[in-house]
Simulated scan of single mutants.
Amino acid sequence: MSASSAGQPDASLVWKKSSYSSNDGPECVEVADAAGTVHVRDSKSVTGPRITCSAGAWAGFLVHATTR
């Protein structure tokens, strides 16, 4: 997993907002997948820092997050 400052939005990524996010709330997470990697960002700061991980690491995170 890595974190980076995006600087400019990547036009090739298709971002999907979490169903738990709202336009008014603090939970604004977006995810984009591309070529075996998953990118995660704060939808309120699209040019801000981004977390990137492998698709396998993301799948493991989702299993952990949904079983709690």
Score class of each variant (00 low, 15 high):
residue 39 H to L: 11
residue 36 G to M: 07
residue 17 K to D: 01
residue 17 K to M: 04
residue 30 E to T: 07
residue 53 C to I: 09
residue 13 L to S: 09
residue 12 S to E: 14
residue 50 R to W: 05
residue 33 D to C: 03
residue 37 T to S: 15
residue 24 D to C: 04
residue 42 D to Y: 08
residue 47 T to W: 05
residue 26 P to A: 12
residue 37 T to D: 10
residue 29 V to M: 07
residue 49 P to I: 02
residue 37 T to C: 12
residue 30 E to R: 00
residue 28 C to R: 08
residue 36 G to C: 12
residue 19 S to T: 09
residue 48 G to S: 07
residue 54 S to W: 02
residue 67 T to C: 00
residue 16 K to L: 05
residue 68 R to G: 13
residue 3 A to R: 15
residue 36 G to T: 11
residue 58 W to Q: 01
residue 3 A to Q: 15
residue 33 D to M: 08
residue 40 V to P: 02
residue 62 L to Y: 03
residue 59 A to I: 01
residue 57 A to C: 06
residue 3 A to P: 10
residue 12 S to N: 13
residue 43 S to C: 04
residue 26 P to S: 13
residue 25 G to L: 10
residue 39 H to Y: 14
residue 43 S to P: 02
residue 29 V to G: 05
residue 9 P to W: 02
residue 39 H to D: 10
residue 17 K to P: 02
residue 5 S to D: 15
residue 52 T to R: 14
residue 30 E to Y: 06
residue 32 A to K: 01
residue 4 S to M: 14
residue 25 G to Q: 11
residue 67 T to A: 01
residue 63 V to Y: 02
residue 32 A to C: 12
residue 4 S to V: 13
residue 60 G to W: 00
residue 53 C to W: 02
residue 40 V to R: 05
residue 27 E to W: 12
residue 61 F to V: 00
residue 5 S to I: 15
residue 67 T to G: 00
residue 8 Q to C: 13
residue 47 T to H: 10
residue 41 R to H: 08
residue 41 R to M: 05
residue 59 A to N: 03
residue 42 D to A: 03
residue 25 G to M: 08
residue 51 I to T: 11
residue 13 L to V: 04
residue 8 Q to K: 14
residue 1 M to K: 12
residue 39 H to C: 13
residue 51 I to M: 13
residue 64 H to R: 07
residue 5 S to R: 15
residue 32 A to V: 09
residue 53 C to A: 11
residue 23 N to D: 13
residue 23 N to Y: 10
residue 54 S to C: 05
residue 26 P to E: 12
residue 19 S to D: 01
residue 68 R to I: 11
residue 62 L to S: 00
residue 6 A to P: 09
residue 56 G to D: 02
residue 31 V to H: 06
residue 32 A to W: 06
residue 34 A to C: 15
residue 34 A to P: 08
residue 7 G to W: 14
residue 14 V to A: 11
residue 55 A to C: 07
residue 44 K to M: 04
residue 1 M to T: 15
residue 57 A to N: 02
residue 28 C to S: 09
residue 62 L to A: 03
residue 51 I to S: 10
residue 40 V to S: 07
residue 25 G to F: 09
residue 17 K to T: 06
residue 44 K to A: 06
residue 7 G to R: 14
residue 51 I to P: 09
residue 15 W to N: 03
residue 42 D to G: 08
residue 24 D to V: 09
residue 10 D to A: 12
residue 4 S to F: 13
residue 14 V to M: 06
residue 4 S to E: 15
residue 56 G to M: 02
residue 28 C to Q: 08
residue 28 C to Y: 05
residue 5 S to Q: 15
residue 58 W to E: 00
residue 57 A to Q: 08
residue 42 D to E: 06
residue 4 S to A: 14
residue 46 V to G: 03
residue 50 R to Y: 04
residue 10 D to G: 06
residue 43 S to Q: 06
residue 21 S to P: 03
residue 32 A to S: 09
residue 17 K to N: 01
residue 20 Y to V: 05
residue 24 D to P: 01
residue 58 W to D: 00
residue 53 C to E: 07
residue 18 S to A: 03
residue 58 W to P: 00
residue 16 K to N: 04
residue 54 S to P: 09
residue 65 A to G: 01
residue 55 A to H: 05
residue 56 G to F: 05
residue 26 P to M: 10
residue 9 P to E: 12
residue 49 P to Q: 08
residue 24 D to W: 08
residue 23 N to T: 11
residue 25 G to A: 10
residue 27 E to L: 13
residue 14 V to R: 10
residue 59 A to E: 00
residue 50 R to Q: 14
residue 5 S to C: 15
residue 57 A to M: 07
